[in-house]
C-alpha cells in the first residue's frame, strides 16, 4: 500500500511539474509550486523523514509561496508570450536525459533502503549510541549530536536561519512605496529651505 502511495504521489508531482511548464498565468504557477512542495513533503513522510518533510512544507509551501506572491505584487501576473523559441529544445533535452541517466546509474551502487550494514549505520552512529551518555551526559542522543558533536554545524545553521529571517523582515516591511501624489506647497518650501 505504501508503495502505491509513493507511485501515486510521484505521478502527481510529475503532473504538477508539467502543468507549471504549460501555464502562462504566474499566480497559478505559484499555487502549483506550493502544491508541489506539499506533495514532496508527503513523499518524505512516506520515507520516514518527518523532519525533512516538515522543513519542506514550511519553506516550500509556506515561505516560498509568500515570497513569490510578494514578487508578483511588484511585477506582472502574466508571463510574456515568446514569439518563437530562441533555441532548439534537443540540446537541453539530451543534457537532461544524460544527467538523469548518470544519477540513476549512481544510485545502483547505494546500499538497499533500510540496510542495517549501510555505512551510515556502521560509521559514527554506534559511537553516538554507546558513548554519548558518558561524553555529553544528555539522555536524548539527538540533542547531544546536534548541540555537541555537530555544534559548529548547528551554529552555522542558526546563523543562516537568523539572516534569512532578517532578510525576509526587511523585504516585507522596509519596502518604500512609490509616492504618486504631488508634493504639497509646504513640502516644497521645506525642500527649498534645506537647499
Amino acid at each position: 500500500m505504501l508503495d502505491i502511495l509513493d507511485i501515486a504521489l510521484l505521478f502527481f508531482m510529475a503532473v504538477t511539474a508539467i502543468s507549471i511548464l504549460r501555464l502562462k498565468n504566474l499566480f497559478a504557477v505559484v499555487m502549483l509550486g506550493g502544491i508541489y512542495s506539499l506533495l514532496s513533503a508527503l513523499i518524505f513522510v512516506n520515507l520516514d523523514a518527518v523532519d525533512v518533510a516538515f522543513t519542506e512544507a514550511a519553506v516550500g509551501a509556506g515561505i516560498s509561496t509568500v515570497l513569490m506572491l510578494g514578487t508578483l505584487a511588484l511585477t506582472s501576473r502574466e508571463e510574456k508570450q515568446e514569439k518563437k523559441p530562441s533555441h532548439k529544445i534537443w540540446l537541453p533535452l539530451m543534457v537532461c536525459i544524460a544527467t538523469g541517466a548518470a544519477l540513476v546509474y549512481g544510485t545502483l551502487d547505494m546500499p538497499r533502503y533500510g540496510d542495517p550494514n549501510a555505512p551510515i549505520h556502521k560509521h559514527v552512529a554506534p559511537r553516538y549510541i554507546n558513548d554519548s551518555m558518558d561524553e555529553v551526559g544528555m539522555p536524548n542522543i539527538v540533542t547531544s549530536v546536534l548541540a555537541s558533536y555537530r555544534g559548529f554545524d548547528t551554529l552555522g545553521e542558526t546563523t543562516v536561519v537568523f539572516t534569512a529571517v532578517v532578510g525576509v523582515l526587511i523585504l516585507l516591511t522596509g519596502r518604500r512605496r512609490r509616492d504618486k501624489r504631488e508634493p504639497t506647497l509646504e513640502e516644497l518650501e521645506e525642500q527649498e529651505e534645506e537647499v
Partner: peptide, 30 residues
Amino acid sequence: EFLDIALVYALINFIGTIAILKYFRFKDLG
C-alpha cells in the same frame, strides 16, 4: 506518533492561505 506533525501542517496551511488572501486584498504583504 507523527500525528502531532499533522497539526502543525494545518497551521502552515492556514498561515499560507491568509498570506495569499492578504496579497489579494492589499496587493502588498507588508
